[in-house]
């Protein structure tokens, strides 16, 4: 249990392993998006690395991984992703805290975690999409926003409708994949936090 306590405490969470895990999480976030685009899947999976970091090293490490993912992508590939670092960090914090409190130990609790991650994504992303980007994101989901806008709904309702349709599936798969993939890694290769929150 001490590894979980260390992972929850900001001062003790950042071990060398945690710092090494952060760039790996950044890479995985990017690869998730790359594979879904290659396979033409209606998903993003761009927070799978952050979620894995949350399950392996706790909320604070995942939050830093989330912010840095969007900073690195924003500063080296596409600048518009920078503001969404807040969303990525919030996902990392919620996933990490819930993992630490045993939400990966039963199917029912995992479903609750998926719902919470969906809710936090919508709550944090919606104001950014509406206020800064006037409802668009430059990706395929804009077609869904356009559909709601065409039916006479205002921009807040249109973006909310789009998020409610596209986010749950993405978050369900993100949690399932992160959980299944970590389970596939031998215990000895997982950081102590990860060994305790997924003890099988």
């Amino acid at each position: 249990m001490s590894a979980i306590k260390d992972g929850l405490r900001f001062k003790t969470a950042f071990t060398t392993t945690a710092w090494v895990l952060i760039p790996v999480a950044i890479g995985i976030n990017l690869i998730g998006r790359f594979f879904t685009q290659t396979l033409n899947l209606p998903l993003f999976l761009d927070t799978i690395g952050t979620t894995m970091a949350a399950f392996l090293a706790g909320p604070w490490v995942a939050a830093v991984a989330g912010v840095l993912t969007n900073l690195v992508i924003g500063l080296t590939l596409e600048a518009t992703s920078i503001p969404f670092g807040i969303v990525n960090a919030a996902i990392g914090i919620v996933a990490g805290v819930m993992a630490a409190y045993g939400f990966l130990r039963s199917t029912g609790k995992i479903i609750v975690m998926m719902l919470c991650l969906t809710a936090i994504t919508i709550i944090t992303a919606m104001p950014l999409v509406v206020l800064v980007f006037e409802g668009v994101s430059g990706s395929g989901v804009d077609a869904v926003t356009g559909f709601f806008a065409a039916s006479g709904r205002n921009m807040v309702e249109s973006v909310l409708g789009q998020q409610l349709l596209t986010t749950p599936g993405d978050k369900v798969l993100t949690v399932l994949l992160a959980f299944a993939l970590i389970k596939g890694v031998p215990q000895r290769y997982r950081p102590p936090f990860g060994r305790e929150v997924i003890p099988f």
Binding site: W19, V20, I22, P23, V24, I26, G27, L30, V64, A65, L68, T69, L71, V72, I73, L75, T76, L77
Partner: peptide
């Protein structure tokens, strides 16, 4: 380091 390693890892 985390920023640089992330940028190089992409």
């Amino acid at each position: 380091y985390a920023y640089l390693a992330g940028a190089e890892l992409i």
